[in-house]
């Protein structure tokens, strides 16, 4: 599903440059659920951004579902993101003047799906996250957990190959975190490939594989026995 070879990335800070990723090699298969861990500054967010095509590596190769991701123009990146990737953010990043169903339908809008069809699909995905009754509500009328579920529905709407989550539970309390993780685990059970960045051990332990980064290199990559979130809910 995803192969990364010898990925390097550095940022210019004033005159000096900061080498963030120093040769990362990573392969993820379809159906995996991977947690990327590391302290702040370890390069985990940068890696996720490169995988999410929000950023480009300086060198190294990145192949997603057999497609080499290179020489990205903004336009190409937009198309790939729309087609292949679903994003879940720590702070949900819902558009605050659009109601839940319109937020979910947004990726479909950029795919050029017709309005009626789009809203139907969005409704389907909202139902999947258990929020069909909240479809007309604005984000400010929803709780944190509900917002994240809307965001998950939005990430799923375009039926992406890969779900990228950046600290998906970072802004939620423990109970809601577990609910969200339970939900993400179900998605994985259904076959979605999921990649998430987290710094919480208990959240990471709910994935099937944990990758630890330190100073821009992978120091540990191990499969773990998945802790089901449902036992806490």
């Amino acid at each position: 599903m995803l192969q990364i070879k010898d990925l390097h990335k550095s940022y210019a800070i004033g005159d000096s440059s900061l080498h963030v990723l120093k040769g990362v090699n990573l392969a993820v298969n379809t159906g995996e659920m991977v947690a990327i861990m590391g302290s702040s500054g370890s390069g985990k967010s940068t890696l996720l951004n490169i995988i999410g095509m929000l950023d480009e590596a300086d060198s190294g190769s990145y192949v997603l579902d057999g497609l080499a991701i290179e020489n990205l123009t903004e336009k190409k990146a937009a198309v790939y993101r729309n087609k292949f990737l679903g994003f879940i953010f720590q702070s949900f990043n819902l558009i605050n003047y659009k109601n839940a169903i319109e937020n979910v339908a947004l990726p479909l809008y950029y795919q050029g799906v017709k309005r009626k069809e789009r809203l139907e699909l969005a409704k389907f995905h909202l139902k999947k996250v258990g929020l069909e009754k909240w479809s007309e509500h604005l984000p400010k009328e929803l709780s944190g957990g509900q917002k994240q579920r809307v965001a998950i529905a939005r990430a799923l709407a375009a039926n992406p190959k890969l779900l990228l989550a950046d600290e998906p539970t970072g802004a939620l309390d423990t109970k809601t975190s577990h609910e969200i993780m339970d939900f993400i685990q179900h998605l994985n059970d259904e076959g979605k490939t999921i990649l998430m960045v987290t710094h919480e051990e208990d959240i990471a332990s709910m994935c099937k594989r944990i990758i630890r980064l330190r100073d821009g290199v992978i120091i540990e990559d191990k499969e773990v026995k998945q802790v089901r979130a449902s036992q806490y809910v």
Binding site: K75, R81, K83, N93, I95, Y110
Partner: peptide
């Protein structure tokens, strides 16, 4: 931020 979200969701420039 909104524009960033839209672009992450696949809006071309």
């Amino acid at each position: 931020k909104e524009i960033g979200v839209r672009r992450a969701l696949g809006a071309a420039p």
